[in-house]
Write a protein that binds this DNA or RNA. Structure first.
Lengths: 154, 154
DNA sequence: ATCAACTAGTTGAACTCTCAACTATCCCCG
DNA sequence: CGGGGATAGTTGAGAGTTCAACTAGTTGAT
């Protein structure tokens, strides 16, 4: 027997669905408009910029983004065409590839980041009370532990 | 001056980002696997099934889904090819088109819905306390009012 | 009545993502 | 050391989305 959602649950689910999509879409479009890249690509640049030597193994990068290898591979191809990332052979594993953030990529990221952070503040942090932000953090962690037990957020 | 995210905010933001994406991706893949349609298309069928005569004007349907007209138009083309939806001319506005759920579309939806609802329960409702669900509803409403003030969720 | 401005909807190209298939390399057990 | 199975990464095709341009019909002010 399926337990259908009651009206209250229905409301909660649809509100969450629409709100989370609206937030992601809004930030994605702002990034696309202001910096010419989708949010997924921005995240790749961020990870690389935080890594030693601004470089990471493709697999590690994919894991840290919860992205499929295929998706990452296509994305890095695109980012390479734009000159923001470059590939290098891995010195210790001949199957491996390193994605490396170029100087130009770093500059593009440095230019994009302030506006993007402003957006995250405007659309998320400034809209909620400190208490609600705490709740949202708890809720998100719980869901993430369930959906992706091996995730890399401490 | 950009106000960067402090470590706490960073954690909250990334947890939310990953959790909401993981949830949507999981449900999308379950739906794709079990019923051969993406979640966006499932939602179209749901809206139509809830509408009088199982039919809606394209614009109203797009608004109720917070979807672009273009996206909906492509989607309805696809759903029409599959025989789940059909287009009709609008009797009162010659520019208008109605999207109508077919009998076959209704049956496909009826078959898909129970599993999908089970998924929503398993991955969302069963993971959170009633208190947390209340909080999530509040938070979502707040964000939605900010991001899309004209949204149609009461 | 007319015409500019607006609304409804579609289209095609470019882009991103998914999925399955594929190559190449590494690991390790017998 | 040899070979089966795992791991790393890429590729191409197909599907969905975006964006801008487009057609067609409607509206309202003059």
């Amino acid at each position: 027997m399926t337990r259908w959602l009651n009206p209250d649950e229905q409301r909660t689910w649809r509100a969450f669905l629409f709100a989370s999509r609206a937030l992601l879409e809004t930030l994605d479009k702002e990034l696309q408009r202001d910096s010419g890249m989708p949010h997924a690509y921005y995240e790749i640049l961020v990870r690389l910029s935080e890594a030693p030597d601004r470089s990471m193994r493709m697999s590690d990068l994919a894991d840290s983004l919860a992205s499929s290898r295929s998706r990452l591979s296509h994305a890095v191809t695109r980012l390479t065409e734009q000159g923001w990332v470059r590939r290098e052979d891995c010195p210790t594993d001949r199957r491996g590839q390193l994605a490396v953030l170029t100087e130009q990529g770093y500059e593009v990221l440095a230019a994009a980041a302030p506006r993007h952070v402003d957006g995250v503040r405007a659309h998320l942090f400034d809209q909620l009370t400190p208490e609600q932000l705490g709740q949202l953090g708890q809720i998100s962690s719980r869901l993430l532990d369930h959906l992706d037990p091996d995730h890399e957020l401490r």
